Amino acid sequence: MPRHELSPFERNIRRIIAQNLKAASRDMTQAELAEKTDIPTSTLSGYFAQRSTPSPGNVQRLADALGVHKSAIDPRYGDDLLEKDVCFEAIFSQLSPERQKAVLTFAQQQLRAQLDNLSK
């Protein structure tokens, strides 16, 4: 049980990490992965069951053992986090109504500026 209530963003990240780990390690057992990474099987089990989030060091160990980039395990290491819409809605929903309005106002200003640049 977490020491604090997980945010929607944190729950979503755990879900994605678990899915990615299952896909990347489908040809090996958790015991084999633990042996390759020196991460205890109980810790790996927590990642797979969405009970815990791997540290940056463990994300790298997992990526190295599985022969993938660390963003293939944890999307927070990728350049396209917002493009994948992994977290934007979760973060936005946690903002106060005033801050949500500020985000929307900023986005509208950016869109207008982009459209102005295209029409030049």
Rank of each mutant, 00 (worst) to 15 (best):
A31Y: 08
T29E: 13
T53N: 11
Q50G: 06
T43I: 05
I13W: 07
A24K: 03
L33V: 07
I39E: 02
N20E: 01
Q30P: 03
N58F: 10
P56A: 15
P56T: 11
S55H: 15
V59R: 09
P40T: 00
T37I: 04
T37M: 06
E32D: 14
P56W: 05
T41G: 04
Q30K: 06
R15Q: 13
M28K: 08
Q50P: 10
A31C: 09
Y47L: 07
T53V: 10
D38C: 04
R14G: 07
S52N: 08
S52Y: 14
Q50S: 10
F48I: 00
L33E: 00
L44F: 10
M28L: 12
S45H: 13
R51N: 05
A31H: 10
S55G: 15
I17K: 00
A18W: 12
S42C: 00
R14C: 09
V59P: 10
P56Y: 10
E32T: 08
L21K: 06
T37N: 07
N20V: 03
T53F: 10
K36N: 00
S42N: 07
I39Y: 04
P56Q: 14
A18K: 04
S52F: 12
R26V: 11
S55E: 13
I16W: 11
A31V: 11
D27C: 05
V59L: 10
K36W: 01
K22P: 12
A24L: 04
P40F: 03
P54M: 07
N58A: 06
S52I: 03
I39K: 06
R26T: 14
L21F: 06
L21S: 04
I17Q: 00
R14E: 09
D38I: 01
K22R: 15
I17S: 02
A23F: 14
A18F: 08
A24V: 01
I16F: 09
I13Q: 08
R15P: 11
L21W: 02
S25M: 04
Y47T: 04
R15H: 08
S52W: 09
A24Q: 02
Q19Y: 13
T41V: 02
A34L: 00
S42T: 06
R15S: 13
A49P: 11
D38S: 15
K36Y: 10
A34T: 03
A24T: 00
S45G: 14
T43P: 07
S55W: 15
N20R: 04
G57K: 13
D38E: 15
A34Q: 05
G46F: 14
